[in-house]
Nucleic acid binder design. Sequence first.
RNA 1: CGGGGCGUAGCGCAGCCUGGUUAGCGCGCCUGCCUUGGGAGCAGGAGGCCGUAGGUUCGAAUCCUACCGCCCCGACCA
Length: 571
Amino acid sequence: MRYSQLLLPTTKETPAEAEVISHQLLLRGGFIRKLTSGMYTYLPLGFLVLQKVTEIVRQEMNRAGAQEILMPMVQPGDLWQESGRWQKYGPELLRFSDRHNRDYCLGPTHEEVITDIARMELHSYRQLPINLYQIQNKFRDEIRPRFGLMRGREFVMKDAYSFDVDDQAASISYETMRQAYHRIFQRCGLEFRAVEADSGAIGGSFSHEFMVLADTGEDTLVICSGCDYAANVEKAAIAPPPEESQSGIALAELQQVETPGMKKVNRVAEFLRVEAKEIIKTLLFEADDQVVAVLVRGDREVQGVKLKNLLGASEVEPLAEEEVWPRLQLPVGYLGPVGLDMRVVADYEVMGLVNAVCGANAKGAHLTGVNPGRDFQPELVGDLRQITPEDRCPLCGGNLTLTEGIEAGHIFKLGTGYSEAMNATYQDQEGVGQYFVMGCYGIGVSRVVAAAIEQNHDQNGIIFPVPMAPFQVIILNLNLKNEETCKAAEGLYQELRALGYDVLYDDRDERPGSKFKDADLIGIPLRVTIGKTYEKSGEVELRQRRSGETVSLPYAETVAYVDDLLSKALS
RNA sequence: CGGGGCGUAGCGCAGCCUGGUUAGCGCGCCUGCCUUGGGAGCAGGAGGCCGUAGGUUCGAAUCCUACCGCCCCGACCA
């Protein structure tokens, strides 16, 4: 492609609306433009990158035996009524009606449609297993779209759905996808981890997230240095502590002490000369409209997703501080489980405490000598706290580190939830109807683009991994008035293209500075400069975007050199 | 939805508080000269419903009201 003919509007200044680096660079580099909140047009360069990712995804899905289809983006409400999600899926599902007043929605995901296809077209166990996928736009009316391509309302997603005869077969499909996903992210040239994850609203029993590692990630992961355990902190299990013998310690008497103004754990600890971990922290949550008291050690944090799962609730939210007194007549900062008249759940660790401290449910007072089991009995005890780097790996006992990541892919074992709700069955060997055992597998294709930039950039702009780069090489012709440089640049352009590479030829009548800046900004992995040096000595300069490594070499050797570098990077 | 902020040229902003001639600046764009290895320089030029509607006033970008849009902080997710 000739730069002079390409719509590539780069800017020097950063648009005010962009917060994160990927969003800034995508706008500055002329990859995308915003249409409205959470919706973007892909300009030529952005679309090229998107296509690079799509093609890798497509190849690996096909290699894994999946078949590509394309479903409509608009879906009938009836189908969602059937699965029960018309009620369950909140306002994120954009609903509307047509001229006949029939309900429709924009597809945020396609379980309903694919299950409908399955029940109509798949009748026999002989047709299974089967895995169908599409690469298509999804629409989710996000509460708050932000970060450009990272969390748009309309975005490109690859979604695949597998159908199997039983759970065991479904596990094989799942494993096949897990491996395909590894290949996909590897081929994209990204640093990533597959982690155990909470399966969230889509449901199902088991899931892995594919996380692109980047400092700006919205999720936190724990990674074991000793084995290959990795998990989202929402999921990362903490084993119950071993039962410690408490026989050696005399149980103290429950006693109320004055702690005026001591609302925070560390203040109470200081004041009473105890450690934070000897304090029982009591937090109020609203779980499906019911207030629940949650107990963790004073030095711990509650993990909301774990709480939600333990309670079996569909929604859990911390109770707003201002609401506590008006609704419950309880003083925030002085809460405790003793004599508390509501549901109480506790983290394992709390139950191991002896002679602990907690709030007295009276303003300015705490209790000492508190002993779980004697002074209060939670309704449920479980793993409720957030894992920390001080915890041990649940698999091998090794050291853990916490890292930020961007969720770019998620694979689920769905089971028979959808097939039962929508009565999707096949006939087994005995001619008996059986529900399909399903799995679903998503990749946020447009998010992969953003994640790649979050992970690969510097002060000058994007540094695309070679497989994702819109162009692999950019040729800068620094002197358009010189016939020799033009001939050389043109020749290189033709030869590299003949080898099948994606080449951008900067033939604009611009000053060298602008060309260098633009080449860096848009992140092309290899840059070939033809200018003064060529005029003097017949040499061109070749620079690698990532390392900055620069070599000058005779014009005649350039093609072979570039070919060598790129074929290595792409293999 | 709750809380905060912003809408003035393609982009980034000033002007508004304290109303008053022709609404400014930088970048970008067009023309010419000049320059050509890291976003040059000079000269000239085009480009505005000051978010929309209503109100106050002799007079509104500026004050008031409503609406719309966008951004940021919280719950959601690929």
